[in-house]
Design a protein around this nucleic acid. Structure first.
Lengths: 239, 239
DNA sequence: AAATGACTGAATAACCTCATTTGGTCAAAC
DNA sequence: GTTTGACCAAATGAGGTTATTCAGTCATTT
């Protein structure tokens, strides 16, 4: 009982449709969770036929993988928009904003904590495949750059772990100890920021022009994150 | 077909038996997990009859509650034994040792992270009932004392959250990101220590005699923890 | 009195059958 | 060529039955 005509196969229109499908899927997964969200639901919500979805992704899993990757892209984009006029001048500032941005995105929260309420059976797989903090190469390089100008001290490799631990700690705490940690997200972000700066040893003394270097390194990190996220998403958006 | 004679009902012997049963239960819960550990197993392992266990605890749950409480007592005791000659002179030192001690105790690790592999259905209940860090009253008081002499700055209530987040963060990270965080427990403990001291603002300046005050406050905290833990355990060891 | 272990009932697991759902395909419609 | 939705096989879930396990009791033994 098909009714649609034949909108010319415009690649832009095609991409728009992919995003519309992902919008629908995002809405539904947040409402019902992964396990209870069916392809039919998504199709109906997006106003396309089920078969159309399979013109974009080979399997249900690939659709949801794309969804999570897009969420990451969005988060990084939002984080970059929040970059101050003069750039992030300390790591704490960066990761404070990072925390705040993440806290405002339910899907990212679910991903971070492996929330099986939302992610269902996806939780296990994603937990293994690749976690959420931009750890690994990019962050390592960032910390090394800062260490080079004395903006952080000690073994850079260790400091990466320090940063990760602090961020995870603050983000997880409300989960583990709901009775405390009733702080608003903004306050949590502030605490993350000052804690990280203090932990990395950013005190009073910063070499002349140091802020510039930090801002530049940070921008490079953000660019790297954005580019990597975008690249992975692109893989999920072509047949 | 009982065989035992009738050893006079010596309270000391009775207590020794309770501990023997708890030893057996601890061994088994670590090996098989809570769900798969039966009372019969425990009885056999402890060399007593099943009925004997019910002379000590009314239900299976009470037995395992006692077990967890005893574990806490042991941990606090071990932590106190590790107190340096001159006492803990900074909060970081304290929580670094705390982390190290906890990491060396599989049951405490399981409790902290709510590991359902080990704790099974107990995980949920314990999660609600009372968590693992000595948060709440005692820690609050401790931080306030330090704040009073300027050994920590800012809002004490917030700093309690900072401390908790850091400790949890470092302890959880290996769980969330096994690929990094391959550091030995000792190194993790060191990082916890320096991170907390820096976060709380313990830099160079400490008022004269400040170390004494910190050491005293810390000892009071430890005493409080030990006493509270001991008291709760005692409740679990009498019929 | 103190300790035991055979015993019991309630809970859980294992198994089956049948109905429904749902991921994925493809011939037909545009 | 592009899109669709009826269709299919496989997976999932509901419902019911039986088998097994195990927490907790208590008559018996020492």
């Amino acid at each position: 009982m098909g009714r649609a005509g034949r909108p010319p196969q415009d690649p832009a229109r095609r991409l728009e449709r992919a995003h519309r499908i992902l919008d629908a899927a995002t809405e539904l997964i947040l409402k019902w969770g992964y396990d209870k969200t069916t392809i039919d639901d998504v199709a109906q919500r997006a106003g396309v036929a089920k078969g159309t979805i399979y013109l974009h992704w080979k399997t249900r899993d690939e659709l949801f993988t794309a969804l999570l990757r897009r969420e990451r892209v969005h988060m990084v984009a939002e984080l970059r928009e929040r970059e101050p006029e003069c750039g992030f001048t300390t790591p704490g500032e960066l990761f404070g904003r990072f925390a705040l941005t993440l806290l405002g995105r339910p899907l990212m929260r679910a991903m971070l904590r492996g929330d099986s309420e939302v992610l269902g059976k996806l939780a296990r797989r994603k937990r293994e495949s690749g976690p959420q903090l931009p750890l690994g190469g990019p962050l390592d390089a960032y910390v090394e750059e800062l260490a080079a100008i004395g903006a952080v001290h000690g073994e850079p490799r260790d400091q990466v772990i320090v940063i990760s631990s602090i961020v995870y700690g603050f983000l997880f705490l409300p989960d583990v100890r709901p009775e405390d940690a009733k702080l608003p997200d903004e306050r949590i972000a502030e605490l993350v920021a000052t804690t990280i700066d203090r932990a990395l040893g950013i005190g009073e003394p910063l070499p002349p022009g140091g802020e510039q270097v930090v801002a530049l390194a940070t921008r490079r990190l953000l660019d790297g994150m954005a580019e990597a996220a975008q690249r992975k998403l692109a893989l999920s958006l072509e047949a």
